[in-house]
Write a protein that binds this DNA or RNA. Structure first.
Lengths: 146, 146
DNA sequence: GCTGATAGTCAGCAGCACTGACAATCAGGG
DNA sequence: CCCTGATTGTCAGTGCTGCTGACTATCAGC
């Protein structure tokens, strides 16, 4: 633990801790951190297929089904056959979904703030940027190119 | 990405990625990253109970049983009843376990290096330190900020 | 010597995301 | 057109993980 203090341990527990904080913050809204991720990829974008959304989140397309099911059931997203390609569902945020996102985002940002509280703001920014850099090479092609 | 680029996404995928790298690096030795964590808490320490080791790793005591089982089966750790408290098992690394740790540590450090490759060394150090800082409060202090 | 708490063990369960299979649809070539 | 192959969404089943609950053995206090 002394010499190089395994990064694996640090990252794992950072993830556990941050997930616990954000889940707790989002629970009153009836969503968890995975759901929030879905809202984030949908907000402010043109309707997209479930598979596109899944790819942006880094989850399997079969996993996306239940996530969208839940949001559709509460009227937060609409699921329509894409007129140009009827294999696809065009997924879009509703007004209600947008309102949910706004509340969720506020709760999420607050939770993130609590997580980062021990850090100097400049250091927190560096942390975020470092993680972005580390993750950039592998999935550098995740910009929409379709 | 979007407005503030959710830290939850970054940390989750950093964890996934680092785990994949380290698991691949450790696989030839017949262990994975969780096993390596066990070796790390045992190395260079006095014998400890399974529960102590579990606490240091942040896992459940029932989870530790199978981990120790595997190491004991390959002669990497010894499991003896603690003479002072025979409810406890005194867990200790054997010579073979120490040799395994040395090889595993080399492989782990290399994998960590690949993970951090896109970062400037100084930034990598800051990243590690920032994570340590963020995780420090829960261990050291009591949780009274509410 | 009782009584209650603690360590290790084990069986079973719950959550989670994935695999594999399926129907519907698209695209392209005979 | 029709046929073939690929793609999308769906769903049941699977494998992995880590936990809960119960049980035994042991300790500590009265």
């Amino acid at each position: 633990m002394e010499p190089h203090d395994a990064l694996g341990y640090l990252v794992k527990h950072a993830h556990l801790r941050l997930t616990a904080l954000t889940d707790a913050a989002l629970a009153p809204l009836g969503i968890d951190s995975k759901d929030f991720g879905v809202l984030r990829v949908l907000v402010g974008r043109a309707p997209m297929s479930q598979q596109e959304a899944a790819a942006k989140l880094g989850v399997d397309r079969t996993t996306m089904v239940a996530l969208i099911d839940a949001f559709e059931a509460r009227g937060a997203v609409t699921r329509r056959p894409d007129p140009n390609d009827r294999r696809r569902n065009a997924i879009e945020l509703t007004e209600r979904g947008l309102a949910l996102y706004r509340k969720a985002d506020a709760a999420y940002v607050a939770a993130e703030g609590r997580f980062l509280a021990p850090l100097d703001p400049a250091v927190a920014t560096q942390l975020r940027q470092a993680l972005r850099t580390v993750l950039a090479p592998p999935e550098g092609r995740d910009r929409d190119e379709r």
